[in-house]
Design a protein around this nucleic acid. Structure first.
Lengths: 223, 223
DNA sequence: TTTTAAATGATAGTAATACTATCTCATATA
DNA sequence: TATATGAGATAGTATTACTATCATTTAAAA
């Protein structure tokens, strides 16, 4: 059985849907490569166009600017993660097991899973860790938010807070705890690799230590 | 008694020390205003020079580029916060009171305190919330870190983790919890204002609710 | 099969950004 | 009086972030 995962993306995320054309898919594929390689600041549409063998103007037909492309990539990532979470948590009834699996999915390294040919999920995961928050840390968050550009993130947050409430219906901050889990799953991994003294994992640099920390944090809080 | 607080800054944070000249202080003062107003992406040295009544080249004599200026501002902020923390926690022996005051200092709104004429601490606090993480979320974190540019942040983290260990010497993740407190004190405030569905504080938008959330999180974890 | 529309490529151009270099001049200091 | 420092003025460059136009290929509809 061969399945192709197609994630339905909000129309406002792009000028022209990149998933429907060859050039569009090349843009997604190679922008992930380039942003991972050079970082978001040094990444330009010109470099991207050169790599693809197209032109700057060609890229602009798909994305208004590079920030919109970043928002697209983050939205894709969170949608994909929601799918994974739903999939892996299916048929599990114990909310504590759900939470543990969830933390694992968030903090552990991602293996490129071939469900989509043109998205390298492993690289994308690393991009989201280092660049993801730049998608919303702008002066125009609120307008972008009105266009529902961050819906996939918020949906995932809702799912997590639902599981938290399943575990303990009396817990008072399920949403804030959910966003804390999401953000820290990424940030502690970033710190571990680049600013290790901000963590307790500098010696081994093992993502499972971050998982351990988050499990402690979560289960103490909602007990 | 009138005191002027002078914070000793790492030499590598600037080309020429901005605290020692009139133009330098104007750069600090007005860059805080402008970044707060337009956001870091839209902020340029040209705009800054116009506001000050100097030239682009003049600004470059003090800071290599605008990213370095951001790092400077964040370093200043964390140093200032460390001073405030040390000051407010002086003579307190109970680590739980220390932690509560600390969370308050991190998450609550800052009132411009006139200890420094040319730094508006209230605006700077808001800048750090929205732009602070961009200082380290780059491809060159590690080199910047080697130059000790993030030392003030790491020092604060060390202080907090020290208090955590005072409270519970057996707690296994004092540093990661410390950086979690710092980051979440800021991020939850940002979310509350701009992406409220990621928090539980969307209705009142009161920083004290963030304080409450963090206190719960911390004291459950280290109990 | 012809017509039409969509997608891309090729080229050009502009305004702004992110710098670097140089020269002058006022002031302070030795 | 000589000298170093700080800052203004001016100029110039490479890159970035776009926008516009036109021709051509490709694919879908008539």
């Amino acid at each position: 059985m061969e399945l192709q995962l197609q994630i339905k993306m909000n129309d406002k995320l792009f000028v022209r849907n990149p998933e429907q054309t060859d050039l569009g898919r090349k843009i997604i594929q190679n922008s992930i490569q380039l942003i991972h390689e050079h970082g978001f600041e040094a990444f330009t549409f010109k470099k991207l166009a050169e790599v693809i063998g197209s032109t700057e103007a060609g890229i602009y037909r798909y994305f208004e600017n590079k920030h919109r492309l970043l928002i697209y990539l983050t939205a894709w990532y969170w949608s994909w993660l929601e799918f994974r979470v739903t999939f892996h948590l299916n048929n599990i009834s114990d909310p504590s097991i759900k939470l543990k699996k969830l933390i694992q999915l968030l903090a552990a390294n991602v293996v490129d899973d071939d469900t989509t040919i043109y998205v390298n999920e492993s690289l994308l995961h690393q991009i989201i860790i280092a660049e993801g928050s730049k998608a919303y840390l702008t002066k125009h968050v609120s307008e972008d938010n009105k266009d529902q550009l961050f819906k996939p993130y918020k949906d995932l947050c809702t799912i997590i807070s639902g599981i938290i409430l399943e575990y303990n219906p009396a817990y008072t901050h399920p949403r804030s705890l959910a966003s804390t889990i999401i953000e820290m799953a990424h940030l502690q991994v970033f710190f571990m690799h680049h600013l290790p003294s901000l963590t307790d994992f500098g010696d081994c640099k093992d993502e499972q230590l971050v998982v351990q920390f988050l499990e402690d944090l979560v289960f103490c809080s909602i007990r």
